[in-house]
Design a protein around this nucleic acid. Structure first.
Length: 345
DNA sequence: AAAACGGGGAC
DNA sequence: GTCCCAGTTTT
């Protein structure tokens, strides 16, 4: 029939039942779409549930602290999403008087909402005719149309955009968008796609030319850089020294122990010889040392934890003491959360 | 246009 | 190990 009717018919029969598909409330759609940015559906589900349970309305989220949202976001990564979620909830509650923006243009103006998310909310919550372009859509169209330019290049993106405009179904925006993304997720997968079950296989360029496994083309990305993190896990009578990261770096606004970082490897001797607090503050030898490698997309972290004791002192700058059993109440990157769970709780 | 921003899962 | 995930923001 047509691309749109083919994929929508397939979608109606085979789609997954996901929590955010049971609602057209823009607030819930918004939360789900922010979570789903660069995040797999299976990982998103429990976070979505936790967030809407703690903050049933945008006013609830607006009244909450950023820290409380970061705590619920722990382990999900790309923490600017959580910070923007909080800022945008306040923006909507106060400047929009609690009414969610209902146009693509107004949605796009929200922090953390880009072209994809604005189109997703516009179509799913308001059934407005804005096509979404995400990783699924780019993969489906690069194969279906036969786009050999890298999909992360300007030319590739324009070809995708133009092809999508031609195929888009203005009469069924929400269903079209759901269908094409679901097709990418379930059938037109990155590796070993199930072309035999694809509703549009007969007109698919890649299928007809035997190049399903080389499309989409993507230009290479930079290799990860190395960072060497030395955490001083300093204890005084069941209290631990903590602070909040505020630099424009990974884990902004999350908490951590005292950190000494070097761009090159250092020995334990090098590290422990330098007192990071003050010459007058006596530190014990470490009780134990834990080391591990933590792989991020653009960085490889070589991490050492030195657990040691000290006398009480008044922390400088933004450091403060936290009782061991209250460490769980401070947002931390998953790397540190796992360390405290394993050794300190 | 390119880089930065997390973490997990599939291969 | 590599790639990619319902991308956005900053440089």
């Amino acid at each position: 029939m047509s691309f749109s009717s083919d994929i929508i018919e397939w979608y109606n029969k085979h789609h997954r039942h996901l929590p955010w598909r049971e609602t057209d409330n823009p607030y819930y759609i918004w939360i789900s779409e922010i979570i789903l940015q660069q995040t797999r559906v299976v990982q998103a589900i429990s976070y979505y549930h936790d967030l809407i349970t703690h903050f049933p309305s945008v006013e609830d989220m607006a009244q909450a602290s950023e820290e409380s949202i970061l705590q619920l976001w722990q382990g999900l990564g790309y923490y600017s999403r959580a910070r923007n979620l909080h800022a945008t909830a306040r923006e909507i509650a106060h400047k929009h008087h609690g009414t969610f923006p209902a146009s693509y243009h107004d949605l796009l103006a929200l922090k953390g909402v880009g072209p994809y998310t604005a189109a997703a909310i516009a179509s799913f919550a308001f059934n407005l005719p804005h096509p979404v372009i995400d990783g699924n859509v780019m993969r489906v169209l690069s194969r279906y149309i036969g786009i050999s330019d890298p999909i992360n290049s300007s030319k590739g993106k324009k070809l995708i955009h133009d092809a999508l405009s031609a195929l888009f179904d203005n009469n069924n925006p929400a269903n079209f968008n759901q269908a094409i993304m679901e097709l990418g997720a379930l059938i037109c997968k990155p590796t070993s796609p199930d072309c035999d079950y694809c509703p549009v296989r007969s007109e698919c360029f890649a299928r007809n030319h035997g190049c399903v496994d080389i499309l989409p083309v993507k230009s290479k990305k930079k290799p990860a850089r190395n960072r060497y993190l030395h955490y001083w896990v300093i204890e005084n009578q069941g209290n631990y020294l903590l602070h909040r990261r505020t630099a424009n770096d990974i884990w902004k606004n999350l908490h951590e122990f005292l950190l000494i970082e070097s761009p090159v490897p250092l020995t334990e001797f090098d590290i422990l010889n330098a007192n990071p607090i003050h010459p007058d503050i006596v530190l014990s030898k470490p009780d134990f040392v834990h080391h591990q490698i933590h792989q991020l997309t653009h960085q490889t972290l070589y991490v050492q934890f030195y657990h040691l004791h000290t006398m009480h002192f008044e922390p400088k700058n933004d450091f403060f003491w936290v009782k061991e059993y209250e460490l769980k109440n401070y947002s931390m990157p998953i790397l540190l959360r796992r360390f405290t769970d394993k050794y300190l709780i």
